[in-house]
């Protein structure tokens, strides 16, 4: 990190520079341990593994990479992953907003417990979630039996993947929105209502616009989580290609078949998608902050 300080230093005149230099020497002497641990640990745990994945992809060559990345099985796995995750995240965008609204604005018995229980998907291991969703949403399960007479099978179909993704992504929207709602004052709404706006107008024109950035941030976070989800989906789906096989399960299957190249390529595609999503989420958060300042 010394390099950063050095570039800064060139801006100073010489006597100032000397004083600064001494100070930096002191600082470096004192801060070196936390810096060393931070940088060393990040390289060992994060950057080295990511580099290994990317290097492996590069050594395959572009044509081979493209062939595997766009193979029929892979394309159908992306479709199942991305489309199902998108629908789940969007539905939770609506339902999560409603839940956050109700939890912040209304009083009702059991509110505190319900509020705390929204974090359940964070606290429950994914394999437990998969196990219990497969049980509850199977033909004979508590909820599955309500749908079975209609000819709707949920567990071990694409709908099972969808339910698992609903489960896993819901808290992201609720938890992103709650603090924003708490800070939003109800006076503005009341003013709009008293000026003769209908409830409908108040909702669309006054309440929703400032909530849009956090809702979209939550949806993006939930989508990102759902796209990467493995544990619950692998248990609640059958993992059959072209039906309910998602991309992370495909990576796992490829590894099991000792097809390291296949696993690497699809894994890299997933990595790139999550990096793009991370960037998008950062931009959304910045947008949200700007909104908050206004």
């Amino acid at each position: 990190m010394a390099g950063n300080y050095l570039t800064e230093m060139t801006d100073f005149t010489s006597d100032k520079r000397l004083a600064k230099e001494n100070k930096i020497k002191q600082l470096l002497g004192k801060i070196s341990l936390p810096w060393t641990i931070t940088i060393g640990y990040l390289i060992l745990i994060l950057l080295l593994p990511i580099t290994a994945l990317i290097t492996k992809s590069i050594t395959l060559g572009f044509e081979e990479f493209w062939r595997i990345a766009t193979s029929e099985v892979a394309m159908s796995a992306y479709e199942v992953s991305f489309l199902t995750a998108l629908i789940a995240a969007l539905i939770n965008g609506v339902m999560g907003t409603l839940i956050a609204w109700v939890l912040v604005r209304y009083e009702f018995p059991g509110k505190k417990v319900i509020d705390a229980a929204v974090d359940l998907p964070f606290a429950l291991p994914t394999s437990v979630a998969g196990l219990v969703l497969a049980t509850v949403y199977s033909d004979k399960g508590w909820i599955g039996q309500l749908f079975a007479p209609l000819g709707i099978k949920i567990a071990f179909t694409r709908l099972g993947v969808f339910v698992a993704m609903l489960f896993i992504s819901l808290p992201f929207i609720v938890r992103t929105l709650q603090p924003v709602l708490q800070e939003m004052e109800s006076e503005v709404e009341e003013a709009a209502l008293s000026l003769g706006a209908s409830e409908w107008q108040t909702f669309w024109r006054v309440i929703l616009p400032p909530l849009l950035p956090p809702i979209l941030t939550g949806v993006a976070l939930g989508f990102s989580r759902a796209v990467g989800e493995y544990g619950s989906v692998v248990i609640v789906s059958s993992g059959i290609p072209f039906q309910d096989l998602i991309a992370p399960v495909l990576v796992f299957q490829r590894l099991e078949q000792y097809d390291v190249a296949g696993a690497t390529v699809i894994g890299t595609v997933l990595l790139i998608v999550s990096l793009v999503l991370l960037l998008l989420i950062n931009l959304l958060q910045q947008w949200g902050r700007r909104y908050a300042v206004k």
């Binding site: 990040l42 994060l46 950057l47 593994p49 990511i50 290994a52 994945l53 492996k56 990102s224 796209v227 990467g228 989800e229 493995y230 544990g231 992370p248 399960v249 990576v251 796992f252 590894l255 390291v260 696993a263 690497t264 894994g267 997933l270 990595l271 999550s274 990096l275 999503l277 991370l278 989420i281």
Partner: peptide, 19 residues
């Protein structure tokens, strides 16, 4: 960078370690 593990699929994380 520190937040990265939250966005990377756990399977991809495992794959990296295998590689």
């Amino acid at each position: 960078i520190i937040d990265l593990p939250f966005s990377v699929s756990p399977v991809v994380a495992g794959l990296m370690i295998v590689l």
